[in-house]
């Protein structure tokens, strides 16, 4: 394809996308989410310095059947991954002959709140660390096991299991620790940077177009509080970095590597954008 036709192409696609996005708009639903007797916070006042007044869970932008599937912890297929995570938790792996349980005992106790506070500052690496990286750190340093490759099914299952122990708890990360603030700054810059042939920034959809339809998808604020999330599209639970990479690929940009500095900065910033929302892991989305 010649450069001129690529440019014409992109303009056409962007134009069409804009048209499609502008064609329909709907309010998020007015509904409450309770899971196993725990009231989920799906609307919260936005933290200081946030572009919105209110942060909203992606749950509010989904069809009734999708919302019902998340509300029923039994029907929620994401819980299969959580159960698998529970098995992995108890499985001994590595030369040290340990399982997660060897040090952390009962996850329901020891992991409570953990999922709501990641990503965290890691002094040893001088970078933020998310749940997946923390799990790998534990595997290597304490279990003498191999770190998981990105999106290994057990990595996803274990992250879902650990984060699920914080179900209902409000997301709150600590930006004062280490150099988290500078990573937040970098993440914010990434969030607002247009990229790819389609020239979209995260903000193009998840800030400027919240409530609009992009084809038939009802655009949400793009929050991270439900990850790892069960996506109907994939028929399984998927990780946050998988989703971030996918979104970026759809702008027709090169995908950054999972856990790269750019994506870690973005994770810090995007997690902050959902401050106050309950952890919903495993959320159910389209």
């Amino acid at each position: 394809m010649s450069t001129r036709s690529i440019a014409a192409w992109s303009a056409l696609c962007a134009g069409v996308a804009a048209l499609a996005a502008g064609a329909a708009w709907a309010d998020p639903v007015d509904d409450e989410l309770e899971i196993d007797g725990v009231e989920m916070v799906i609307r919260a006042p936005a933290p200081e310095g946030h572009p919105f007044d209110e942060v909203l869970s992606g749950w509010l932008f989904r069809e009734a059947e999708t919302r019902a599937t998340e509300a029923d912890s039994f029907a929620n297929p994401g819980m299969l991954a959580v159960e698998r995570g529970a098995e992995v938790w108890d499985t001994v792996e590595g030369a040290a002959g340990k399982s997660c349980a060897s040090c952390h005992n009962d996850a329901a106790q020891s992991m409570q709140g953990v999922g709501a506070r990641f990503p965290k500052w890691d002094a040893a690496s001088g970078k933020p660390v998310n749940l997946e990286l923390q799990i790998n750190k534990c595997r290597v340093e304490n279990m003498e096991a191999e770190p998981y490759k990105f999106d290994h099914p057990d990595q996803v299952a274990l992250a879902a299991y650990v984060k699920h122990q914080s179900l209902g708890m409000p997301v709150k990360i600590d930006l004062a620790e280490g150099e988290m603030q500078s990573w937040w700054d970098k993440g914010k810059e990434n969030y607002y940077t247009r990229m790819g042939q389609l020239n979209f920034a995260c903000a193009s959809c998840h800030e400027a177009s919240v409530g609009k339809y992009i084809r038939a998808d009802h655009l949400s604020q793009g929050q991270a509080n439900g990850f790892p999330t069960y996506r109907f599209r994939d028929g399984k639970v998927i990780s946050l970095h998988d989703r971030l990479r996918g979104c970026i690929k759809d702008t027709r940009a090169e995908m950054p590597d999972a856990f790269s500095d750019d994506l870690m900065a973005l994770e810090v910033y995007v997690t902050w954008r959902g401050t106050g929302l309950s952890v919903e892991t495993p959320a159910v989305r389209q």
């Binding site: 339809y213 992009i214 038939a216 998808d217 989703r243 996918g246 759809d250 389209q286």
Partner: peptide
């Protein structure tokens, strides 16, 4: 049956 937008 709808076709989604940018599904990732």
């Amino acid at each position: 049956v709808t076709i989604g937008g940018c599904g990732g």
